[in-house]
Every structure is written in C-alpha cells, then in structure tokens.
Simulated scan of single mutants.
Amino acid sequence: MMIVRHAAHRDLDDIYRLAQRAGESGIGLTSLPQNKEILAARITRTTCTLEGLAEKADASYLFVLEDTTIQKIVGVSAIEVAVGLNEPFYNFRVATQVHASKALNVYKTLDTLFLSNDHTGCSELCTLFLDPEYRKNQNGKFLSKVRFLFIAAFRSFFEERLIAEMRGFSDENGHSPFWDSLGYHFFNMDFAAADYLSGVGQKVFIAELMPRFPVYVDLLSKEARAVIAEMHPHTLPAAKVLMSEGLKYQGYVDIFDAGPTLEAKTSDLRAVNESRLLKVKIVDQVETVNIQYLVANDQYKDYCVLLINNNVQEGDTLLMTAQQAQALNVSEQDQVRVLALEKMENN
C-alpha cells in the first residue's frame, strides 16, 4: 500500500538515498541536496512546525511517500510556509521598457529582467522527487497533489499566495545557456556551484553580486533568450500537474536558469474548492471504479493520505475497508477529506 505522511527522523537514510538518486537526474534539484545534515535539519523543521515551535520564517512541511509493504520511502515533496523572511528570496521579473523619441521617430519596446523580491512571504511548493522505479500508477500526481489537500485542510497556516519554481532548461551536460550568458559574468563560477549554494541556503552572495539595474534581454545571447521561462523537459510533467490545480506563469523566472515561477491564490486552488468532507463507514468490501481519489485523515500532526478507487457516491459517507481505515488511523464515523485525483469533467 502506498501512503503519504509527514517525514520523521527514522526516514533520514531513505531520504538521503533519494537525494542521491536526484543527483543522478542532473543539476537543478538543489532543494534535495546530498547532505545528511541539511536533510536532517529539514526533518527537524517539519517536527518543530507540527509542534507549534517554529516561527513562520522557519515553518515547513516535508512529506514522504512510503511503500508500506516493504517500509521504504520512495518519494518526497514539501511546502515552505513563507519564503524570504529570513533571507531574501530572489527572482527576475520579466518586464517591458519603452524607449521613444519623437524627434528621431523612434519607438521601441524592450524586454527587461528586474531583480525582484516580489514573492517575499509567499508559501512555496518545493522538493518534489519520486524514485524512478515508482514513476507509475499515478504515484507522481499523488505525491504532488497531497500538498494541495493539506493546504485545503489547514488554510490558516499558509499565505494567500502560493508559488512553485520550475527547473529551467539545461543541456545533457548540465550547462545552462541563460547562466552562461548572464550569471557567469557576475559570479565567475559554473552553474552547478551557484545553483547548489543557493539550494542549501547560502544566498547572501546573490545580493552581493547580481546586477541591481535592469538587464536588457536583447543583450543576451540568442540561446539565452530562447530559454527564458522555458522548463527542463524532465520538469514538464510536474508542471502540468501544478497547472491542473490552478497555478500559472505570471512573469517571474529564476535568476540562475530562467525557469518559470508558477503561482496562484490559495483560494483559487482546486483542492480548496472541490475537496469534500465525508464520514467513514467500514465495510468488508468496496465497489471500485476507474476514478481515483485522494483521501486524507485531516489529523494535523499525524497527517496521512491514501490514493484509492473506492466508489464515492453522492451523500456524506465514504465506504472503506478495515485495512484502508487502519492505514489512515480513522474509525467509523470519523471524517476524511476526499478529492478526485483528476479534475472531473462536470466541474
């Protein structure tokens, strides 16, 4: 059985193994570094957040996907409650400047990149990685969409604006044409090194070295211009999942690889508007259908979610087997939160 729950310190070795697998996927997954101390600190932040001991700037939730049949962690995903409150959160805002002269009969619009802290205080979806061997049976969507269901259940803990940074384009050798054309000239380090330092929280150098004036896109190389707001091919499936839940690109890109930032108001998320609370009824057998549902117990500290294909009919009751109820730690008449994995056509 596959289940999503909060990460715990007993998961550290498995999460570290996933970080190593992520490293095999190439540059750009820096929110899951191959560093046990940093990963342990991520778990500690989750624990402190759940205990109410974390300040908003440090609050974070790290989820794990567990294959309970072999007690193995096979995926992770996370939510940062509010970014940029301890250290500045940077990206580029893609904007337009007009250069005009009536005397010369010249009127020209130019795309520009402005160093921005506009997403300060936003909640952020991050750290999504699934073991390649488990990229089947909708596990990826399950692991990603759990975060929306958690936000729907505990909206008061999150900000009204939600963002997700998408990995930008880099070639098979890990070279970013955007970085080569812009960032390298200010940092004098390769893309991998700069991206890693940012991912592990050493971002002060960004403020010290990045240009404070607008960057004219036309001055960049043709290759760099072509990848602004473009995603790495491996990231497209994850981005489509987020966009199906209500996020979209609104003109911000990463300062390293120019990958797009997706964003939405939490009030506009599908999970917020379409998830339902149903009462549990435990039965010996359930009728199954082709539609899959996320089912969460809505227990803040002991949060867990299943992906099931039980027949969910109109009304206020969800039929579940004893095994499913036990996995969710719920009993007869307890409430669970239910959301179709895919948006229903009639919604």
Rank of each mutant, 00 (worst) to 15 (best):
residue 10 R to G: 10
residue 261 T to A: 09
residue 196 Y to R: 13
residue 245 E to V: 08
residue 238 A to R: 00
residue 250 Q to H: 07
residue 293 Y to I: 02
residue 331 S to C: 11
residue 51 E to R: 12
residue 332 E to I: 09
residue 263 E to R: 11
residue 266 T to E: 05
residue 262 L to H: 05
residue 199 G to Q: 02
residue 329 N to S: 10
residue 226 A to F: 13
residue 133 E to T: 15
residue 146 V to Q: 03
residue 13 D to S: 15
residue 347 N to F: 14
residue 257 D to G: 02
residue 259 G to P: 06
residue 255 I to E: 01
residue 85 L to T: 08
residue 57 A to C: 10
residue 172 E to L: 06
residue 281 K to P: 08
residue 257 D to V: 05
residue 290 N to P: 11
residue 165 E to N: 06
residue 143 L to G: 01
residue 113 L to V: 07
residue 232 H to Q: 08
residue 213 F to V: 14
residue 311 N to Y: 06
residue 5 R to P: 02
residue 80 E to A: 15
residue 309 N to Q: 07
residue 147 R to H: 09
residue 49 T to K: 04
residue 37 E to Q: 12
residue 334 D to H: 04
residue 219 L to T: 15
residue 87 E to G: 03
residue 324 Q to M: 06
residue 247 L to K: 04
residue 324 Q to P: 10
residue 170 S to V: 10
residue 117 N to W: 12
residue 278 L to D: 02
residue 93 R to G: 10
residue 294 L to A: 05
residue 306 L to S: 06
residue 227 V to E: 00
residue 30 T to R: 03
residue 148 F to G: 04
residue 155 R to N: 13
residue 284 D to S: 13
residue 276 R to L: 09
residue 87 E to K: 10
residue 333 Q to K: 15
residue 54 A to P: 04
residue 116 S to V: 06
residue 50 L to E: 01
residue 31 S to P: 07
residue 166 M to H: 05
residue 344 M to Y: 10
residue 301 K to A: 14
residue 103 A to P: 05
residue 207 A to G: 12
residue 233 P to K: 08
residue 93 R to N: 07
residue 329 N to G: 10
